[in-house]
Amino acid sequence: MRWAIDHASRERLQDQIAGCVRGGVATGELEVGEQLPPAAELGAALSVDRNTVLAAYRQLRDDGVLEFRRGRGARVASGGPDLSAVTEAARSLIATARLHGLGRNEIIRIIKELT
């Protein structure tokens, strides 16, 4: 599993970590039932506090992406939210943006302004 976070970004670190997991689930890099790294270990690798990782994991559990089991850590939940509609909408957004000559950064800027 690949993780990329930006300490200089204004987006909260826990949201960025949660975003990595969501992305991993959406692309299939994380399979259902796969165990995520323990919070302390991921935190050390990303140079963030363990509690930040735990906050991200908890946020994902509340959204039904992960499930916690005692002694077995955080796992990717089965039957999590279906993101295929979002992916499909994003594809059409990108296609429309390309038609109007907008690049990747412009699309991201528009999304950032709207959210």
Partner: peptide, 9 residues
């Protein structure tokens, strides 16, 4: 400040 990390099990 960007951290690109790989974790595997």
């Amino acid at each position: 400040g960007t951290h690109a990390v790989y974790t595997g099990r």
